[in-house]
Write a protein that binds this DNA or RNA. Structure first.
Lengths: 114, 114
DNA sequence: TAATATACCTCGAAGCTCTAGGTATGTCAA
DNA sequence: TTGACATACCTAGAGCTTCGAGGTATATTA
């Protein structure tokens, strides 16, 4: 499980932007959706996600607004910007190249021990 | 480029063990081989690799021995152990699962902006 | 003989995530 | 109505990983 945590490092922004590309979402919702859609592999902690969202907003990749839910509770929604979409495309491309190269290295390694 | 650095995080040990599974190697050699086989995507720094090798040796995943090269220069070779091979298999499996899940999330995201 | 490449090493800075705390509100059961 | 729990947001500091920058030493080559 520890390895997963480290692997996750570096792809969290990509995952968050990817989520937001399908529609506006609020923080708590993103954590639940990522956790569910990854079968509990990507279980972002709040202490991880919120700073990331603040950072993305500061660099203009997302914009936030508050909206009241049916429950009466106030939520802070995030919407991806054009700039964010461009960043998403770029990071997606980097991820594909990266993963292909890791797979190429792994393909060249010896098979499992008997 | 920054993203690559972060993506690399967490997969370095996997890559190093993978290299060693094809034969004994010394540090400087691993750096060059990884760099070349990845088209300069995985350019491990010495300050990164040597501490990793020391850590792997401490936990019994590799063993080191010195050997004199034809040039007369002394090199420190590393050999992967049975324990290291098991770790490699495990990390390989984790990587495959992880990358598949990232791809699944990405597949669900909106297409590129026009 | 001086510069460069090889080959090893360590320390402190920087970046990212997590842990652990805090605040506040809505829901539901006792 | 009150206490527990889930929802929903936030931050500060610890921990882990990589990198940058430096150091040491030897072989090659100009």
């Amino acid at each position: 499980m520890k390895a997963d945590k480290n692997l996750l490092s570096g792809s969290t922004t990509l995952l968050v932007l990817s989520l937001l590309s399908t529609g506006d979402k609020y923080g708590y919702e993103m954590i639940a959706e990522l956790d569910e859609r990854s079968d509990h592999t990507f279980t972002l902690k709040e202490g991880t996600l919120y700073p990331i969202l603040h950072g993305l907003e500061k660099e203009g990749a997302v914009k936030s607004y508050t909206k009241e839910a049916d429950t009466g509770r106030t939520r802070k929604y995030y919407r991806i910007t054009r700039k964010g979409l461009k960043a998403l495309e770029e990071q997606k491309k980097e991820w594909v190249e990266f993963s292909e190269k890791v797979n190429a290295i792994l393909a060249g390694c010896a098979p499992a021990l008997a």
